[in-house]
Structure formats: C-alpha cells, structure tokens
Write a protein that binds this DNA or RNA. Sequence first.
RNA 1: GGCCCUGUCGUCUAGUCUGGCCUAGGACACCGGAUUUUCAUUCCGGUAACACGGGUUCAAAUCCCGUCGGGGCUACCA
Length: 430
Amino acid sequence: MTVKVRIAPSPTGNLHVGTARTALFNWLYARHHGGEFILRIEDTDLERSKPEFERDIIDGLTWLGLHWDNGVLYRQSEHVATYRSHLQRLLDEGKAFWREFTTDEKAALAADGRTPRDSIICLKEPDDTSIMFDDVIRGRIEVNARRDVGIVSLAKDLDTPLYNFAVVIDDLEMGITDVIRGEDHISNTPKQLLIYRALGATPPRFAHLPLILGPDRSKLSKRHGAVSMTEYRKDYLPEAMMDFLAHLGHTYPEEIMTPEALIAGFELANVHKSGAVFDARKLDWMNAQYLKRMSPSAFKSLVGHPELDDAAVPIMTERLERLSSVDTFSYLWEEPRYEADLLRWKGDDRARTLKALSEVALLADRAALTQDDLDMLAADHFDGTKGSVYWPLRVALSGLDKSAGPMDILAVIGPERARERILTAISKLQ
RNA sequence: GGCCCUGUCGUCUAGUCUGGCCUAGGACACCGGAUUUUCAUUCCGGUAACACGGGUUCAAAUCCCGUCGGGGCUACCA
C-alpha cells in the first residue's frame, strides 16, 4: 500500500513552527516513500477559525517549499454531511449516545464564561480493557480504556463534530496510512483508537514526533518569542529553515543538506524520542551558510538591490546572518552619514587624518587606487601605520566604525563615487 | 494529583538495539590564536556531557532494578 500522510492544522492562528516541522516530517516521509502528502484544514471550531489564518498557513507552507498533493483544499467544515452520517450510524447502533450534562457541569462551564448546552454526543463508556498501539517512534504504548480514557466526546451535535471524531473520520475517508504528529497527541491516540473500534475500522500507523522546545525546555510557545513562520520569513531563507527544522529531532549525517538529500535520508527510525530546543543561533549560522552559497544575481535580487556590482555580494554574505539586517550595508548603495571624528584613527588628530585623506585623494585623481598605493603612502608618510591611511579612507567610504575594507567598497561603488566620498570626508574635517 | 512520554557537552546530536574499537565523536555557541586598517570570512587550538544509586559482567554511555529530573495531556479547543 502506498503511503498517504497529511498535515492537519487548524486555522486558529498563524503557522506555528511546530506545525511547520510536523508538516515537513510528513512531507519528507511521503516524498521518501513516493507517497502522497495532504493538507487538511481542521476548522471544526467555527468560532476560532479565521480565513486569514488559513491564508497564513498556506503561504507559510508554500514558502517552505512543502507542496501538498491535493490541489483543492480539504476543509472539515465542508464535510459535515459525512460526519453526520457516521455519527447517526454510531447513535443508531447504540455505540454512541447523547450525554446529558449535570447542573454542576453546566454551572462550571457558565462560570468559565461559556454557554453550556444540555447534551453532547459521546462514545459509550469503554470496558475495562487495555488499549494499545505500536508507535513507530516510541514502541508500544498501552493504557486502560475505562480508567485512563473514559468517555470520549464526539460532537456537540449532529452537525458539529469535535476534534477527535473529525480526525478519525477524515483519516479514514482519505485513506491516511500514517499519522505523523506531535507528541502532544499521544494521549489523544487511545481516544481515537476507541472511535476506530466503534466504527469497526482499521486504524492507521501512528508516529509521534518529539516536541520543539523553548529555552526552558517547555513546549515552544508565544511566551518564548517568535513562533509563527511569518516572523521568520523576513530573516531566513526557506531552504535554511527547512534544513534546520529537519535536523530538529532527526539524525542526519551532514549539517547542510539539500531537500533531495533530506528526503533520501529521512527515516522514522532516525527520529528521536525526546524534545529538541529551538536554537535560533544555529538557525542563524545555517542561514549564513546558505547565503554564502547563493549566486550573486539571486542574492542581489533577494535583498532588493539588483543594480549592485557583483563585488558587493561577498561583502554582504560574509557578514549577513539575518536578512532583515541587510541595511547595515546601505553604504554600498547610498551616501553614508557620519560624524567627522569617526574618521580619526586611534590617537591620530584631525590634521594627520586630513593629510592622509588628502594624499589619498591626490592618488585617486591620478589613477585607480590600489592597495600598493595605500601601503606605500603609509610607509612613506605615516611611519608605517597603515591604520592612519586605511581607517579614514574606510570610514569615508562606509561611514561606519565596522565595515568591509576600503578596497572592497571601492570595487562596488567605483572610483567616481569613491572620490566624492573622500572629498566629502575632507570637507567634514576642515 | 492522575495517565503517558522522555533523560549523552549550554544547544542540536553520534554512539545504546547487536556490551569491549568511547581516555565519549561532530556541529552551533563560547574562549584563545593566526591572517589583519575596523568588522567579518577563513584556518588552527581549547573549555564542556554519559542525571544519580545499586546490580550483572573480565569489561557498561550501552543490559537489569530503583531513585531523581524534564515534558505532554488531563475541554462542550485543536
């Protein structure tokens, strides 16, 4: 049987990194086995589901490069008839029943600010039997149906299915072969198994992924900072993000791997059992690695400056980790602004700085500046102190205390603009 | 509290199934050095872990038992 997996996010928030990672593992698994990867929108919670969140999830998944095989989106809300018929059948067969709430339960709910209803549809209370499954990642998991699971709620009414029920019906209807999801769903699995049993259906295989953790080792959430993919898009390359996420909880032989290699090497057997902390610094490093490997033209258009000379590319890629910091290189495309005092190298006074810059300007007037010219200038007139020449020139060109070297900048902006900047620096000192 | 999952450097991890090649390897981060006009890149080097306690064994990170720790779930959310 060919493999068919799904990612089933609920559009009650933007695409969470944890959901993205689960999606990635499902995708990797499907592609590795030549199977299908389905996107299913779990919008049974009508109140919290929002179209803009659905949009964000779709955009995020697309950005990451995770393409699903069902062209038309499957939304649970569009399949009420299916849930209804299964629900009715379960009711008719006496496997499910309308469970009345006690006044106490209703009071508790009302106190919570919610409008309680009189009854919901539940599965008949299970027998005192053990219910078990062999998790592909964790091995056998076994619990007592009556004591540990109890009564499973299925739907608020015939047209309003609840999560556990909708998931089972959809997975069944779609022919999902492997359910690969977060560890936080382990405790839902016995409930769903009970539903499969009531339906007389064969459950799929289950594989529970370790959670992505925050620095304090609890499930990654908003209080840890950015958790939505959207927030990462402005800083990272999708291939870097994919690579990073793929390594969280899965063993791979290399740090930097192409999507093809990730697919080829993906094995549920190599998925870990314990959670992994999301380390943004490693993501930064990976991103930097991918940036360095980009072609000059691709990089230039990525950062929005296709007009730049190719020489600008290594200047940026050698220093850039997060895309949003690209403005620190603005001196490559616009005139720098700075205070005159920044031009002075260490103990040098204004006169000496002015002299250095003037000599450089003279040199630049005669011919294209070379490193040899500058070295000679330093040796002849500044007792060998290269800094006295290089520093003012570099600041004149970049306007910053930290930047690429003057010769590198010169190669990007050209001799004309360089000369103008040197002249500007000289006038600042006068 | 109950049920379930889990435990190798600060972090991601190799090694655990099939005990010896592990005086525990790699990567990120960090520290130091080389190159050097600043920053960065690059290259060298370094600090740093088998949660703890028993047991089995000639030999245990690896097997067994216990303890402790961390996490998840505990909805008329998903």
